[in-house]
Design a protein around this nucleic acid. Structure first.
Lengths: 213, 213
DNA sequence: CCTAAATGGAATGAGGCATTCCGCTTAGTG
DNA sequence: CACTAAGCGGAATGCCTCATTCCATTTAGG
């Protein structure tokens, strides 16, 4: 009973094109302006009217979820890539650089990760993030290349810090590299004093990443 | 012709009290909720009606300016205090700790400093900040305790980064100390690679601090 | 007690934005 | 080519959130 297939097959070609354009426009507009961009902005960027947006998506929220579910997966994949790097320290550095680079180019992605989207808590992100990144940190810890007391949950505040830098300098899109370098130097094992207060525990990490704004 | 004095003298005692309460309420509410707190919030916190707010201030903007002009001066004073510390490195550390501590307790203050208030650019802040903090950095530089390439303008991104941490953890009001320590370790002279990209120049620093959101 | 000062909080008005509606356009078919 | 339903644009709607204004009522202080 290929009813759906039949309907899909008869979708007009121009409609399909607009659908593509809209996805792309949403990606670009949310990346540049963040999730508070209006559907009007997106429609205009795609060269269509708002009505057309609603022919393709049920709501703004649906657009965002469609867009950033995929994005989340891609970040998780980046972590896997970093894990394949032999040197545990280089793997850590690579993980931060790749992820930060993605986020620097996509304000909507940042908001999704830091829970600054207008939606309720999404524990899934925090949960998966810890699960996937942990091995990276564990390995570095065991190899003795991580500073005493540094843990996975430090990635939350670190990405929050980098977010502050992205937003500060449209004119210098790579400024974050300077401060990430600073932070990474601080994370590396060496002859240093202990850090003054402990990192978040995993429960607090989840809360912190899902606290509404 | 003490006309004003006469009027002042005849101000009702309850009115004067409300005036005090309002100032205090505004301080507390803006500190906790940021500058987007409503006048309704403030009035309620002070135990008065909104009408009374307008008897004491012409507009929301006036309240904010009154409140944070004073706050700005006090920060500039903190810098002067740090300058009196003999050890150039300890002075730097103290400056960051005192200033960060103030900002951690006052979200409105952060927004003012980072230009996230809803008002136009206020170059004055950036200008004075550079002027006053420069000697602190110059002295540390000359003493050789600062990492190669670190400049005054690094304070902008650094405070932006710390802001990200404050907002992440209501439950851990001192978490910022951990990450400030990390950053300070990175700022200190030592056997390290050069930082990958240069700091903002002073012009870019002003732009960055006054860019609207 | 009297009265001008002060007050509370409902009402106003502006602005922003997601979502809906509907008359017009046009792709695709026979 | 003509026809028709899928698609479309974008004006209209409805909902919010807030700063600011207004005025009937209360109250300090002489």
């Amino acid at each position: 009973m290929p009813i759906d297939e039949h309907l899909a097959r008869t979708k007009r070609r121009d409609a399909a094109l607009n659908s593509e354009r809209l996805m792309q426009a949403a990606r670009e507009v949310f990346a540049r302006q963040g999730l508070s961009a209006t559907l009007e902005d997106i429609a205009q960027h795609a060269g269509v009217g708002v009505g057309t947006v609603y022919r393709n998506f049920a709501s703004k929220r649906e657009i965002i979820e469609t867009l950033y579910d995929a994005a989340l997966d891609s970040v998780l994949a980046d972590v896997q890539t970093a894990l394949e790097i032999q040197d545990p320290w280089v793997a850590i550095v690579t993980f931060f650089e790749v992820t930060a680079s993605n986020q620097a180019q996509d304000r909507g992605l940042c908001e999704t990760f830091l829970g600054h989207d207008g939606f309720g808590p999404d524990e899934r992100i925090a949960e998966e993030l810890v699960a996937v990144v942990s091995p990276l940190f564990d390995r570095a810890s065991e190899a003795g290349v991580l500073r005493e007391g540094v843990t996975v949950t430090d990635i939350g505040p670190i990405f929050a810090m980098l977010d502050g830098v992205y937003r500060m300098s449209d004119a210098r899109p790579d400024l974050w590299r300077r401060y990430l370098a600073l932070i990474l130097d601080g994370l590396r094992a060496g002859d240093r004093p202990a850090l003054p207060v402990p990192a978040l525990d995993v429960a607090a990490f989840k809360t912190a990443l899902t606290a509404a704004d």
